[in-house]
Design a protein around this nucleic acid. Structure first.
Lengths: 336, 336
DNA sequence: GTGAAAGCGCTAACAT
DNA sequence: ATGTTAGCGCTTTCAC
């Protein structure tokens, strides 16, 4: 059994009381310089670290924040996590990452676990399956701080940070239009996600502004955000089998964009001859993709940083906060 | 402030003592069925969850395991993490993921933080910078259970799980040889990593077995495992500037392989005309890569599962374990 | 069948 | 300047 050293161990070894040791280690002014020195040196020698569980229990906070994302393998999220870590680390917070794999059940379980006391706040990006947010609502009402990023819950009042999904989608769609495509399909994640709604709006606006009709048959949802290959393949097949077949597709998600390219490859759909494509993606190897992907990139790292900063400010605020920010960051269109 | 419900809250509301409530919740036989029912229903209603910090403090274990990897954005690691979670989850353990970003300092800090009490055991894959493992040694000696996967510490006696790196490297190199390449370079991570050593051995063996000389100028190290673009570009440039320029390269790492393809693209090196390539990679979109990459794939998910199973068995073992396994799993060569 | 009390490691109010 | 004590939330003797 691993038995880390405790204050008591130090106190016993040095013939002091635990409180003296505690104070010495935290450099209180009421301890003699000499005692401090002795204690500090000994603690150093045995590499003493305070028990975080005891600290959390005492202080009623854990100096850690929980992160809920769908998948770390998603480039957007892995970059956002790096941003989260960079800020949290600076401010002395530990980061606990959990994945939902786009499952509502998993999301509930993870959040419950994190909330029950081990974290001071939550950074949440909803799973594709989640439409009911009451599990978050109730925790939020009881005072657990949370900040949403990317996939936000509209009905929970707190800070939110998203990319300008509508504008990003608009630009991507418009890019296809300017290339001469007129029959542009839209492949997206589950219909209740905030990002899906915003991106759909941008897509529709671009069509409208350029006098193109919105064809409902050109809109395909993947309720699991492309977690399953079949989901994507079926959607693509349905598009290809339409009598009035689309000549381009705008894809609204990182995993989905890549998944779509794989499907094209497997179905032997030539890009851009049979079908042109643009899509949201934060992949760092877009240059290597074949077929090429003109992509909408979100400032993931920065979004993670801002979300974390917001959350830690909420956590550390001495007064209740009633004014909440909704921050929207611009995307960029990487043309290929 | 978020104030979760406690046993005391329940006890007060129901006019019972905390110990009765505690026993009722954990279904002890010495509590009357009726009391149990009342307590359980009330707990359900307020959605009571025990404070994990208090539990950890009491039981001196946290039912959580720490994972140390270089980067979750690395495909090998994100897949391994999924394997880890799948087992941990089943056995009621929580998983805390930390990233070293290939930095020795960061590794030390993360491990200290995890070890100081919040986790019952560690799943470790060393950072590229790490050559001194004394920070792990001392914790291990004091009884903290750990299992290594992928990048193992040879000098720490515990369970280890790796891919058959030597064989994988052998096959990849041999594949190039059979394709007719005779001047095969080797691009690898830092020289002290176990995986680098094993993969280098496989590379050398393949050369030897096919009567090709080992040319030390063809061996290039990237001490940061390709974390920095320049590191990879410089290595590739050096290879290209050799008077006796190699015609192929075998790359020993996930991030490095992808990085290498990017460099080729940017330097306008044609594959396979100017340079053929094979490399370790667990990317799930290899099919989309251009230039194509014939890749050695590790059974990442399975390795994560096995490592976790080993660790939990160590943690839960009632007797000290002195016999340690070194499990080696076969890689597969995906030809493109 | 239930309650009171001690203790996990730590800090802070209260002695001295 | 240092020691004693209580309490954070929980489980677990030990009483009754």
């Amino acid at each position: 059994m691993f038995e880390p050293f405790t204050l008591k161990d130090i106190a016993k070894a040095l013939g002091l009381s635990t409180s003296t040791v505690s104070r010495a280690l935290r450099d209180t002014h009421e301890i003699s310089a000499e005692t401090k020195k002795i204690v500090l040196e000994y603690a150093q020698k045995i590499n003493y670290k305070p028990n975080p569980n005891a600290l959390s229990l005492k202080e009623r906070r854990s100096k850690s924040i929980g992160v809920i994302v769908s998948e770390v393998a998603n480039h957007y999220f892995s970059q956002a996590i790096n941003g989260i870590e960079s800020i949290a680390y600076d401010k002395g917070y530990h980061v606990i990452i959990t994945q939902t794999h786009e499952s509502y059940e998993r999301e509930k379980i993870n959040i419950q676990h994190l909330a029950s006391r081990s974290v001071d706040g939550l950074l949440v990006s909803l799973s594709a399956e989640t439409s009911d947010t009451s599990h978050l609502q109730s925790l939020h009402k009881r005072g657990l701080q949370m900040v949403f990023f990317d996939r936000v819950a509209e009905d929970i009042e707190t800070h939110k940070i998203t990319a300008n999904n509508e504008k990003g989608a608009f630009e991507a769609t418009e890019y296809l239009i300017r290339q001469g495509y007129k029959k542009i399909a839209h492949l997206t994640s589950s219909d209740h996600l905030s990002i899906s709604i915003e991106r759909l709006n941008g897509y529709k606006k671009a069509l409208e502004q350029h006098g193109l009709p919105f064809n409902p048959h050109y809109l395909k949802y993947c309720p699991h955000g492309g977690m399953f290959y079949d989901e994507v393949e079926n959607a693509v097949k349905e598009l290809m089998n339409l009598s009035d077949r689309p000549d381009a597709v705008f894809v609204a998600g990182d995993r989905l964009s890549v998944g779509c390219l794989v499907v094209f490859k497997n179905l032997n759909i030539q890009v851009p001859k049979d079908m042109a494509i643009t899509g949201f993606s934060n992949s760092d190897v877009l240059d290597l993709m074949h077929p090429p992907l003109t992509a909408v990139r979100q400032p993931a790292f920065e979004m993670g940083q801002i979300a974390t900063d917001m959350l830690i400010r909420l956590i550390e605020s001495r007064y209740p906060v009633y004014e909440f920010e909704k921050k929207v960051l611009d995307t960029s269109l990487l043309i290929r």
